[in-house]
């Protein structure tokens, strides 16, 4: 754990010393403020469109940061050969994988906190209310979704050679799940038998990342989700993250580095 945390702290340091995050945050803030400055029929209480846009930007930025940062970790270590002095220390490859995962995931958490604080300020400035429970749930679920995403990208980074192709594949898969995941069972119903079973199997096997997308509930001020359900979703994400991490370790464990 000590070793994993040491590696994680380096990953977090890298994130805040690189400019990516600031660029994305400033972009998000600028676009949101720009959209917020629009006047619609002299009504300054209109807020939901702004919440929706802000959350969309947050989702895009967080996914970009999560996949981009994670996909590059292990390949960059190998390419810059920093992995050699590192693994020459008393550290196992499992600890390296765990450390990279923790680092990327914690970094995503920090990023999310900054983004959601901004979101909270924006919506509170219009609505004059602070749906703290809902916002916290959105942040929490988003963060756990990113755990699955980070673990997935980490697995990709030890399977695929080039980080850019890994990032692209990950993004396509993740976006596919986010957009289609919920409806695959309906799609399966339309198909003839062999495909029907295949699509249904995929539907049950893949991590339903779209569960964690509660933007509609937040935008339209629905009540917070039952906390037990929230906890269930957390366990669901944790299970998939552990699965992907385990797979990463299996692949990486015996991989020659030279």
């Amino acid at each position: 754990m000590n070793n994993a945390l040491a590696i994680a702290s380096v990953v977090v340091k890298e994130l805040y010393r690189r400019k990516d995050f600031y660029v994305l945050f400033v972009l998000t803030a600028l676009i949101t403020l720009l959209m917020g400055s629009l006047n619609f029929f002299n009504d300054d209480k209109i807020v939901r469109y702004l919440k929706e846009i802000c959350l969309l930007l947050i989702w895009i930025s967080a996914l970009t940061i999560a996949v981009g940062t994670t996909a590059r970790q292990i390949p960059a270590e190998r390419e810059n050969r920093t992995i050699f002095p590192l693994l020459a220390k008393p550290i196992s490859r499992g600890q390296l994988v765990a450390g990279k995962f923790l680092g990327c995931w914690l970094a995503c958490g920090l990023v999310l906190i900054v983004f959601y604080l901004f979101f909270g300020v924006i919506s509170a400035s219009r609505e004059h209310q602070w749906a703290a429970a809902s916002y916290f749930q959105a942040l929490w679920l988003h963060w756990w979704m990113l755990a699955v995403v980070v673990a997935m990208a980490l697995l990709g980074s030890v399977v695929f050679a080039a980080p850019s192709s890994n990032a692209t594949i990950c993004l396509v898969v993740i976006l596919g799940i986010l957009l289609m995941g919920r409806h695959l069972n309906q799609v399966a119903l339309q198909l003839a038998e062999p495909m029907n079973t295949v699509v249904y199997a995929i539907y049950f096997a893949l991590p339903h990342l779209e569960l964690f997308d509660v933007r509609d509930l937040v935008v339209h001020n629905w009540d917070p989700i039952n906390w037990l359900v929230c906890g269930g979703a957390t366990l669901y994400a944790a299970a998939y993250a552990v699965f992907f991490l385990f797979a990463t370790w299996l692949v990486f464990r015996r991989q020659p580095l030279a």
């Binding site: 660029v23 994305l24 972009l27 989702w59 895009i60 990032a167």
Partner: peptide, 20 residues
């Protein structure tokens, strides 16, 4: 340089927009 991540960002937004 943040160029690659910007590219990802762009890709993301294109996908999202397409989807919507």
């Amino acid at each position: 340089m943040p160029a690659p991540s910007l590219l990802f960002g762009l890709l993301c937004s294109v996908c999202f927009t397409l989807a919507t």
